[in-house]
Design a protein around this nucleic acid. Structure first.
Lengths: 198, 198
DNA sequence: TGTAAAGAATACTAATCGGTATCTTTTATG
DNA sequence: CATAAAAGATACCGATTAGTATTCTTTACA
């Protein structure tokens, strides 16, 4: 039982890396098993086909990661404007796994797979909806505590901010330095500042 | 000479559609020739390989399209805040070619190909840079004419707005109605309004 | 009109794809 | 320890991939 679990997990981990850096459709099963100590027999014992593995990557790897990196800090925030900025700063300039060149794992997969596979679309939709709602909750708390203007619409703001994040990660792919992230963060800062009561 | 040009163009047109809706790597040459009146011999007469064709799609189809849809309206704008909003509204809710489900052609291709192929990255970088600069010029004109606050940084604003566009088009892929576009546009409107002198 | 080059058609290749069939090894449990 | 099921290994399959080789047809122009 122990070994099997670790085999399965190592497939998912390596697949996640490969999908993140090369895309889902460009990641072949042969490549996955070639870069892990796993044979094809083992792969198809754990997953009935490639798509089932892809969905497991979303649900078992990406979802927990997203929850830790985004949702948790947002839900525990008492100063949403400050914490949203801090989170974005961390994701764009500090996080060592999310390489500039490769964008956002969830954003990439959404773009590639949602028009093609409905199950992927559903899994990714759940992931992003949860994230958006966490940000809305944080913003609502800011409104209630009086730090944020009562006139703002938290759904609008959450969608606006997250769109910006996905978009700038795409811009980041085109440049080889962090300049565009710095420029983006400056404008994000002033946008967020404008949400605050002064 | 006439016929050859039209053959080449029909390859590019159809390829653009297929790449837009299915992605570059998922679009096979066999599919392209099967959906056009073009044989493999003709394809490889006009393009020495698939990547050369892909680059031609960027430079000869996407670039002119982007220029007409984005750059031109921006450069001729005398009311940038109003015209940027109008442009986004058009792109998200009115344009009949850009289907919600399939995102933004340039955004898609950037995400898929820029980490993988440097020539694609360069061609797409040129395209987006030109677009960003057009928006900066429009914003600068607004500053000079006094309709926009002198304190804003037009590079920041341009990058912020375009990131939001790419991002929301990715969100759009996950939903089957236009609601997220409408929510996004509301917040964009209030963001842009805040750039104006009042 | 003759002819060379441009353009297009057809048949093929080696490599790679996702997946299957079959077999062997490991593990849990009576 | 016996044995059945879980887990993994190996060899293979048909389909598809980008690309090539070769032949045929059309076009431009002397």
């Amino acid at each position: 039982m122990k070994k099997a679990v670790s085999t399965r997990l190592s497939i998912l981990q390596k697949s996640f890396e490969l999908i993140y850096t090369h895309g889902y459709q460009a990641t072949s099963i042969d490549t996955i098993i070639a870069t892990t100590n796993v044979t094809k027999g083992a792969f198809f014992y754990h997953f009935k086909n490639k798509d089932e593995m892809g969905l497991a990557v979303i649900n078992e790897i990406m979802y927990p990661l997203m929850y830790a990196d985004f949702v948790k800090p947002l839900l525990s925030s008492n100063d949403p404007v400050h914490d949203i900025y801090k989170m974005m700063h961390y994701l764009l300039l500090e996080n060592e796994f999310l390489l500039k060149k490769y964008g956002c794992p969830a954003g990439n997969l959404t773009q590639e797979m949602s028009p093609v596979n409905q199950l992927f679309s559903q899994a990714l939709s759940k992931l992003t909806t949860e994230l958006k709602e966490a940000m809305q909750i944080a913003l609502k708390k800011g409104k209630d505590s009086g730090s944020i203007k009562s006139g703002i619409n938290e759904e609008q703001v959450a969608l606006f901010v997250l769109s910006g994040y996905w978009g700038i990660r795409n811009f980041g792919k085109l440049s080889d330095d962090n300049d565009c992230y710095i420029v983006y963060l400056e404008e994000l800062k002033s946008y967020l500042k404008n949400l605050e009561k002064n």
